[in-house]
Design a protein around this nucleic acid. Structure first.
Length: 503
RNA sequence: UCCCCGAUAGCUCAAUUGGUAGAGCGAGCGGCUGUUAACCGCUAGGUUGUAGGUUCGAGUCCUACUCGGGGAGCCA
């Protein structure tokens, strides 16, 4: 069974009316008395294989008829173009070989809960949704490398065992490095700054670790981040780089993964709008929006929408419950019961939203200049826009020590966050770095950090310091946004969450 | 760490508000030549998360714990 004797499902359209052999796994089967419909999954796509009694040996027919989901097999037959089939092609089977028959595969083609699927992650990969997300993740990562490699950036691999704190001291994973405490990297940025002084434009790309005990849909303790760093750049330059970068990723996914996006139910029309320029707001403008009538009206309208949806759901549920009491065929009753389950789960989701809306309104209204923007605040801002939004110039005290103080307004730093639209929130954080030796040293001391540890970092300001800056983009958050996946744990093969690691 | 919600068959969920635990899917057997999460018939499948309490009687009410989901803080 060498590779050149088998044909990938993705290439069947080039083999119509030819005889081919497919290898893969049984995704689904529907058995008739004298005809079987086997849906084969081979990693490149799905193909419906038709097995007619009499066209294959009887024992093959019987074996295939009782074959369990996810059995591995090889099938040979003639390719036919048929619009009734998934993918537009099907296989008229003349011979088949079962490689490994399977019984009791745990993941059925029906609905499953989140916890169950995570516990079966090693098998859940095989499901359509995870497969499509995985392919899009692949494209996103390739597009990231492509963009930087094509734009004069040099890849610099920064260490995973580190001695320096880039973000927050409380969120470090400590490791015992031959008796010396080190920690896993939170960012490659500080190392990258030294590389930028050698290569000009650099980037690093790898896993990042944050020991934040966050239990939300946008947090992982291990995630992938790409960080470009550029010498001789200012804040407007960075924003331009970031919007071109993000737009190029989205464009690549639209080009390479349209059917995956369709499978996932992503909003393709919205993605097509993702082109420069993005919206630009200062932090102060964002605070004015949050505490002013605009956010208030927006949230009030949102609450009204939620309540209208709730009313509609309540009416539908009441209707179905009344119908359920009446006389009717069993299958009709079952259908109503299934519909009720779906509607009730929608209702519970909308109830949560209705419950959270006033809390978020309160948080937004109580917001005072000086705090960092909260998750809900970012969600509100991002929901109010149909394209990504840059929020720039945050208060100095809310941000990391290395960010450059704005010389025009010393209360703020020259930084930015990029919020993905329609509620997805932050996907990029970045800044111009403080390039003045004395200002940086003061910041290090003010933060209570040990200047000796940062001696090499200060050297970069001693020897030919230049204005420079960069940003970090979270891969899983980007994939979640593009695929319209609610939770980023679905956007990494083996998610590590606070307090939970399955395999 | 805090707030809200949940735990019933392998899976997803019901159980008329305290009165004999049910259905679909999945599994097994049978039927059907064009199915699309196929359909139809039959069969098997349960100490209702754990421990205690209230009650003639608890899946349902109370307390504690465990596990899970959502949200806050923090962040990519």
């Amino acid at each position: 069974m060498s590779e050149n004797q088998t044909t990938p499902v993705s290439e069947l359209e080039n083999h119509v009316d030819q005889q081919v052999t497919l290898t893969g796994w049984l995704y689904n089967s529907r058995a008739g008395g004298k005809v079987l419909f086997l849906v084969l999954r081979d990693g490149t796509g799905l193909c419906q294989c038709i097995v007619e009694k009499g066209k294959v040996p009887d024992e093959t027919f019987e074996a295939l008829k009782h074959l369990g989901q996810e059995s591995s097999l090889a099938v040979t037959g003639q390719v036919r173009a048929d619009q009734r089939s998934v993918g537009g092609c099907e296989l008229a089977v003349t011979a088949a070989e079962v490689i490994c028959p399977t019984a009791d595969y745990p993941i059925t083609p029906k609905a499953h809960g989140v916890d169950f699927l995570l516990k079966h992650r090693h098998l859940h990969f095989r499901s359509q949704r995870q497969w499509s997300i995985g392919r899009i993740r692949h494209t996103v990562i390739d597009a990231i490398r492509r963009f930087f490699n094509d734009n004069g950036f040099t890849l610099i691999d920064t260490p995973i065992f580190t001695t320096i704190v880039g973000e927050d001291q409380t969120s470090l994973f400590e490791v015992d490095y031959f008796g010396t405490p080190l920690h896993l990297t939170q960012t490659g940025q500080l190392y990258l700054e030294s590389a930028a002084m050698s290569f000009g434009k650099v980037y690093c790309f790898g896993p990042t670790f944050r020991a934040e005990k966050s239990k939300t849909r946008r947090h992982l303790t291990e995630f992938w981040m790409v960080e470009p760093e550029v010498a001789f750049i200012d804040l407007p330059g960075l924003l331009e780089l970031a919007e071109n970068f993000v737009s190029s990723i989205v464009a690549r996914v639209l080009k390479d993964n349209r059917t995956d996006l369709e499978t996932l139910g992503a909003d393709i029309a919205a993605l097509e709008k993702i082109q420069p320029p993005f919206y630009r707001l200062t932090y102060t403008e964002a605070v004015d929006i949050l505490t002013g009538p605009k956010a208030n009206d927006f949230l009030a309208k949102q609450l009204q929408d939620f309540q209208n949806t709730k009313k509609e759901l309540d009416t539908k549920i009441a209707d179905l419950e009344t119908q359920q009491g009446g006389q009717m065929k069993q299958w009709k009753k079952d259908k109503i019961a299934a519909e009720l389950i779906e509607l009730r789960s929608q209702l519970s989701e909308i109830d949560t939203k209705i419950e959270n809306n006033p809390k978020h309104a309160q948080l937004a209204a109580d917001f005072r200049w000086g705090k960092d923007l909260g998750g809900s605040d970012e969600t509100i801002i991002s929901l109010m826009h149909d394209k990504p939004v840059f929020v720039t110039h945050y208060p100095k005290q809310a941000k990391a020590f290395y960010m450059k103080t704005d010389r025009a307004n010393e209360k703020v730093v020259e930084n930015f966050d990029l919020l993905a639209p329609e509620g997805f929130g932050e996907i990029i954080g970045g800044s111009v770095r403080e390039d003045d030796y004395d200002v940086l040293l003061d910041k290090i001391n003010a933060e209570g950090l040990d200047p000796e540890t940062y001696d090499w970092y200060l050297d970069l300001r001693r020897y030919g310091s230049v204005p420079h800056g960069g940003f970090g983009l979270g891969v899983e958050r980007t994939v979640a946004w593009i695929t319209a996946e609610k939770h980023i744990r679905q956007c990494i093969p083996f998610p590590r969450m606070a307090d939970k690691v399955y395999i």
